[in-house]
Design a protein around this nucleic acid. Structure first.
Lengths: 113, 113
DNA sequence: TTGATACATGCCTATATAGGTATATGTTGG
DNA sequence: CCAACATATACCTATATAGGCATGTATCAA
């Protein structure tokens, strides 16, 4: 099997660089698809597809505005990501010390492999 | 093309649930592959593969310990994830108000599609 | 109704896995 | 050197996209 469907997982949805780009762009406010596609330098169908994924995981909302469809950010789904990664904060702060010690051990061990 | 190679991107590496599990387990300290495989309820080759991906993006370090190979956490690579998602913090806090207003607009507009 | 504009979808292709199984590699002890 | 244990890899299969292109659909204006 390939990776789990991006459709049901925020972590998968933001694994795609261009989708992260879209989210960043939307912080500035709602945007129609065409404008997003243009700013991302990709064809419109591509932008629509990414927006669909983002919509399905709930990171984006859309509303009709006449001929256009405005997409807007709903960042609540990113909170779990922030919290999960935050659970490692103490570790990346300790990292320097730990790695120093660790590298030391390796050197003394003769640095195999 | 499929998604970009997970090998060169931390966001892709943590898109896989079991890899996130591994990182969490490693917060408790270094572990040999077999033990991780057992705790994750997956065959050893599977654990080795996930560990390889994590190693290639730098989230994990390994050192030989006799017959075993101990894997340890190097959480520094998660910092960018935390910071990126943190860039949306103000938005998920505002979300309730915004969405309330937003839903209101939709209702008044006649709630199309 | 016709034409133009703005999107969403369908279809097709190439590719990157996730998993499972079998096997190669490396290490230790006798 | 041989057997046993711990891992990493090679292979093979099924599947989920990312992208490109063509086309369907909805909305608005004349």
């Amino acid at each position: 099997m390939a990776r789990a469907a991006t459709t049901s997982d925020v972590f998968n949805a933001i694994a795609e660089p261009q989708r992260r780009e879209i989210l960043v762009l939307l912080r500035a406010g709602e945007r129609p698809v065409t404008e997003l596609a243009q700013e991302l330098g990709m064809p419109q169908p591509g932008a629509s597809k990414h927006l669909r994924v983002l919509r399905e995981v709930g990171l984006v909302r859309d509303r009709k505005a006449g001929k256009q469809r405005l997409y807007g950010l709903d960042a609540r789904g990113l909170r779990p990501v922030h919290e999960w990664s935050g659970g490692f904060e103490q570790f990346w702060n300790e990292s320097f010390d730990r790695l120093d010690a660790y590298v030391h051990v390796l050197e003394q061990a003769g640095q195999e492999e």
